[in-house]
């Protein structure tokens, strides 16, 4: 369980991120409610995973934390500063305290810059003018991500590196400014199975060494347990379940979490012999989400006259916080 004595690094309170839809470029045509009321605290050195399918709002949530989207409503506090009010120098300073590891390592690296330039860019932008100092830090961070000897890599361009090496460069860039928080958006989903574990272990090693707080965003429940302390499950813009990771994989509470787990395969030949029990339908549109609980049209345990009417609040079940009427 989370050590409650730890200080809060990031506090998100009733965050809404809506994108306005426009008809013919001007007339208002509704909102995409990508993030619709998310609240949580992240402590120094804590790792959390946000799990959900594409379009559940996890990417919008992450980009808002990175300061790339502006919140429609709600507050993000980082080290007791309201992120929404930061501008100019202060905003840059805030961004430099968060590392960002992206999904597609090749796309995340400018194809026309060599490794040295890629790693120096954050330093240049954040005012480190001495080239010797920059090179020292570049070499140090390359050692951290085990790209040694650094001289073999410094002058290479991204396309000359393997997927795993590219992702190491992305991680190196994310930590070169010595951030307090790293946001990793599906950092291994585009890598091969044998490399995936290597990158996850590297990230975990760095996290432990520097007591980094990490937000790990993924659609793959099976990698979550090797990486994070707490898991948030998102569905259609809401967090439906928050739980410590081991507890979540052993006793998932929310019907959507259960469905996600049921759909995840482990390598087992018996899988081929049976059909999987899955909820029908597809995730709802974020423009016009269902009333009440957003999962109710697909939910096998739906309570009539309740789930489709009233939005569920969070209920405490053991160590879980579950937004589901079943646990009232």
């Amino acid at each position: 369980m989370t050590d409650t004595n730890r200080e809060v690094l990031l506090s998100i309170d009733d965050l809404h991120v809506w994108f306005e839809l426009r008809r013919f470029g001007f007339g208002h045509a509704g909102y995409v409610k990508a993030v619709d009321g998310v609240t949580f605290n992240l402590h120094y050195g804590e790792t959390i995973a946000i799990v959900g399918e594409s379009g559940c709002g996890k990417t919008s949530l992450m980009k808002t934390i990175l300061g790339l989207n502006t919140p429609t409503r709600g507050k993000i506090m980082f080290e007791d500063k309201n992120v929404g009010e930061l501008t100019g120098e202060a905003l840059r300073d805030y961004r430099s305290k968060i590392g960002y590891v992206q999904q597609d390592p090749f796309g995340a690296l400018a194809p026309f810059m060599n490794v040295q330039r890629i790693l120096e860019e954050p330093l240049v932008i954040n005012g480190i003018k001495d080239p010797a100092e920059r090179e020292r830090r570049v070499r140090k961070v390359m050692e951290e991500v085990k790209l040694t000897p650094a001289d073999d890599f410094l002058h290479k361009f991204p396309h000359m590196l393997s997927g795993g090496q590219q992702q190491r460069i992305v991680i190196a860039r994310a930590i070169i400014l010595e951030p307090k928080l790293v946001v990793a958006d599906e950092p291994v989903s585009m890598l091969d199975a044998s490399v995936r574990v290597e990158i996850l272990k590297l990230l975990r090693g760095l996290q432990e060494k520097y007591r980094l707080a990490v937000i790990y965003i993924t659609h793959d429940l099976s990698t979550v347990r090797y990486f994070s302390e707490r898991v948030f499950v998102m569905y259609a813009g809401n967090v439906v379940e928050k739980a410590p990771v081991t507890s979540l994989v052993h006793t998932p509470r929310h019907p959507y979490t259960v469905a996600l787990m049921d759909a995840t395969s482990d390598p087992d030949a018996d899988n081929a012999l049976r059909y999987r029990e899955l909820p029908g339908g597809e995730p709802p549109s974020l423009v016009n989400p269902p009333s009440g609980c957003r999962f109710h049209p697909r939910c096998p345990k739906r309570i009539e006259n309740l789930c489709e009417v009233e939005e569920p609040q969070e209920f405490q079940v053991d160590e879980h916080l579950v937004a589901c009427w079943l646990y009232k």
Partner: peptide
């Protein structure tokens, strides 16, 4: 190297 959801087995990678 496959991470497993239902088994408590630390995955290993290939160098």
């Amino acid at each position: 190297s496959v991470p497993r959801l239902r088994a408590n087995q630390e995955p290993e990678y290939i160098t």
